[in-house]
Design a protein around this nucleic acid. Structure first.
Lengths: 151, 151
DNA sequence: TTCCATTTCGGTAGAATATACCGAAAACTT
DNA sequence: AAGTTTTCGGTATATTCTACCGAAATGGAA
């Protein structure tokens, strides 16, 4: 499905999403036209779903972040769908995963300060119907925040 | 520090990290040269730390991922530094956060399959000195995986 | 206020790059 | 082996980047 040369391209574009086609072609050992075609195909197939600037959370003024463990009261699709759709549209929630273990969901939330986090809980999280339990683990330090898949 | 117009640029570049300078200038209502200068300044100040292609985990062949809760036996800098430096260089570990709560660290690990995950634990995680406890929460579903800060 | 210094602006031109098309080479099928 | 399809590298043009310019805006100090 994804060939070796594609993986090299993907690895490069993960490292530098704004690399020029010429740089790309050089670093994977391909002609510019062949390389450009492969990139476009990867985009069209959705293997590359987009490109993003990586912004420094602290410097951009988002001092506070936390990992939330959330459990639902019940797991009817109605409740689950409601939870999922609400979470998706809250931009403070950068990540949300359904997991095995004690909690049903792991969320990572990023806000400007503790006030904003408190507001997030009161105005949003605690108002979602069917929530059994929310445990907050404040992030003390970001050891690593990567987006690159380990090709 | 980061002005309103900069935030608009950052928001746009988070949505499309390969937007041309002209597109950017249009969408934030600025001349191309002014826009280009601001982008370069944001890069030089490290507010934009880089650019990345966003690659579909599933389509790229990484079927398995998990969230790990890790606790250390002791918290001497020696043990902590060892743990941190080892985690940083393992590319399967996309994210690692030091948190409050029961565990000391939350990690998100992405691998091709369960075999690879088992190997990751045996060959890497369980060999780090000073680990007290590791709990694996397998990710059943990715509800949301975002990188964009909520400007 | 008025003046001067500094920063930020928009416009522009040459250099660099992206993008689509071409015929040739390679790979695959029968 | 012949025919079909895919992928290749090279190239021309349209687009975009990047650095420079003088003008406008901004911010203090007298």
């Amino acid at each position: 499905m994804v060939e070796h040369q594609d993986e090299k391209i993907l690895a490069e574009l993960q490292k530098d999403g704004r690399a020029t086609n010429q740089q790309l072609a050089d670093s994977v050992g391909m002609s510019t036209s062949a390389c450009w075609r492969r990139v476009r195909a990867l985009e069209e197939r959705g293997i590359i779903s987009g490109y993003s600037a990586l912004v420094s959370r602290e410097q951009a003024g988002f001092a506070t972040s936390a990992i939330l463990h959330v459990s639902l009261e019940r797991h009817d699709t109605a409740f689950v769908d409601e939870f999922v759709s609400r979470v998706k549209e809250r931009r403070e929630v950068l990540e949300c995963f359904a997991t095995t273990g004690d909690a049903d969901y792991h969320l990572r939330v990023v806000v400007r300060d503790m006030d904003a986090y408190n507001k997030f809980l009161d105005d949003f999280m605690f108002r979602i119907p069917g929530i059994r339990h929310v445990r907050t683990n404040v992030i003390l330090k970001e050891i690593k925040t990567g987006v690159a898949l380990p090709f």
